[in-house]
Design a protein around this nucleic acid. Structure first.
Lengths: 209, 209
DNA sequence: GTTCAGACCATCCGAAACAGACGGTCTGCT
DNA sequence: AGCAGACCGTCTGTTTCGGATGGTCTGAAC
């Protein structure tokens, strides 16, 4: 029953020639270049860190490898600085803009998972001591409070510091962190008050059952 | 307190159990085996799908590869069915229990990222047409509503169908999906009402900046 | 009592992603 | 000029991903 018979609407950009497979990184690069006009790989690294990098980090090596790949597919144009470091400068092409537009227009909507390490640990907390669960909850609450503060600082930037769409995305991030903080703090409270029965009936199912 | 292990020439199976590199998958396997007493790899696949698999899916190949690895490290004991398929049956050892306990007790708290594909797309929605953003938001809302319903069905199981810790984890999942649904629905509303300025003042920064 | 379909179970492999070490290049300060 | 330190880019081993592939068993039809 674990099979998902997803219709899988083959979301590959059909109108774009030679575009084999575009990953999230591809669209990140495409989007960043489109937004800024031009960018070197290093710029991409910085741009990403300042924007989506907050909730989705990419190894910087990816941001160096992806632009040439996209250039080869015709989605980016590449030029070089004349002097100095002779860095690669990328600019989006019409084909690139089309691929980006198609991605934005497609009703693809994969939905991702809640892969929080703390959540995995919590799921098995019954196997440890109750005190460990408290430690975990406190730690998670603190970590998420810190992350929340960082988002809030970012959100405090003036209105024209980021496009409306990014700001809106940031708001989901804010909500997410608040949810996490509330959740873990409530858990700390419940555990401290003994409101959660760590040994309610008989503990975990005995192996011999 | 994550250990930085220097790459030894030949890393022996285990000198100190639990100190080697154990990944989230390792702990998933350890936890599942501990919870159920015994398990074949195929069982693990099923158990995972029924529990944490809801918010954190693992390729099943991982669940076949990991148990032998853990057995080699002394954290699991392996026996075989006598007849029939002669499947591998795993059972946790004292060392395995110790490693699991150590993990549960450690104040590790890595915090993971909000890697939702929809969020990435939203972050660049300013580059597309406003109608695309509406499509995206509607699609995301629907997808998350479906996921929410699935969680709710799971949560409706009787109290003894799952340990308290897993139920608690599920509650975070529930909250997360509700947050998503609310967020995307609110976005649909704002976009429809024109409350979000897709072309506020002057558009994105010109390339020549 | 064979045969065969279809579920159940397990392994393998190429292609990415990942983390981060390592090296080169330039700028500002002395 | 010399040098420190920031800036910038590439490379490599390891792990993960996702799915193709291929065996094994049950039971129902013949």
């Amino acid at each position: 029953m674990d099979e998902k018979e997803a219709p899988d609407a083959t979301d590959r950009p059909s109108s774009v020639p030679g575009a084999a497979s575009l990953t999230p990184v591809s669209y990140l690069v495409l989007g960043l270049v489109a937004r800024h006009g031009t960018a070197t790989p290093y710029d991409l690294k910085s741009f990403a860190a300042q924007s989506v990098g907050n909730f989705w980090s990419f190894p910087h090596a990816q941001l160096y490898k992806e632009p040439p790949r996209l250039a080869e597919a015709g989605l980016l144009a590449e030029e070089r600085e004349e002097f100095g470091r002779r860095r690669r400068i990328f600019r989006i092409t019409d084909a690139g803009r089309a691929a980006l537009a198609e991605w934005l227009a497609s009703g693809e909507t994969a939905l991702g998972e809640l892969r929080a390490p703390g959540l995995l640990k919590l799921a098995f907390a019954e196997l440890g001591r109750p005190a460990d669960a408290v430690t975990l909850a406190r730690g998670q609450a603190a970590a998420h409070r810190a992350q929340l503060a960082s988002y809030e600082a970012f959100a405090a930037l003036p209105a024209d510091a980021m496009p409306w769409s990014l700001r809106r995305a940031l708001e989901l991030g804010l909500g997410y962190e608040r949810l996490q903080v509330d959740f873990w703090e409530a858990l700390v409270g419940d555990l401290a008050a003994g409101r959660i029965p760590p040994s309610p009936s008989a503990g975990p199912a005995p192996p011999g059952s």
